[in-house]
């Protein structure tokens, strides 16, 4: 359970929100010229990084407004919350806390099997 700071209502419990998956996915401009493979990618493929992730949330049990967030999926720390019309923050603004792509961060992960 995490706390999320809604840009309109302030800090609330995560259970008040619904997650909308990856943010900044752009609908292809020329769908008719797209191959089946590319169209399949647009419909079904989303990034799934361990680390910095741009995602959408909606405050379902509150103001019902959509907004974007940057979260570290390996620790669940929310690094930035911004409105949909704001520019996507650059990846270099955030520090990834992982030593390797599949590694475990020093805090936040419950994976005690491999945490040193």
């Amino acid at each position: 359970m995490i706390l999320i700071k809604c840009p309109y209502c302030g800090e609330r419990d995560q259970s008040e929100f619904a997650n909308g998956g990856e943010a900044h996915v752009i609908r292809p401009k020329n769908p008719e010229s797209l191959s089946d493979k590319d169209w399949g990618e647009y419909v079904f493929y989303r990034n799934n990084p361990k680390g910095i992730f741009y995602e959408r949330w909606v405050h379902t049990h509150g103001c019902k407004k959509w907004f974007n967030a940057v979260r570290n999926t390996s620790t669940d720390q929310i690094l930035k919350v911004y409105k949909v019309n704001e520019k996507r923050p650059d990846l270099s603004e955030f520090q990834n806390t992982l030593k390797s792509p599949s590694g475990e961060p020093s805090v936040g992960s419950g994976n005690f099997a491999v945490k040193k």
Binding site: M1, I2, D13, Q14, S15, A18, N19, G21, N48, K50, F53, E55, R71, T73, S74, T75, D76, G108, S109, G110, N111
Partner: peptide
């Protein structure tokens, strides 16, 4: 949980 995560814990709700 209703969101992507690699923390092996999960929400209490």
């Amino acid at each position: 949980d209703g969101y992507n995560s690699f923390t092996q814990r999960g929400g209490y709700d």
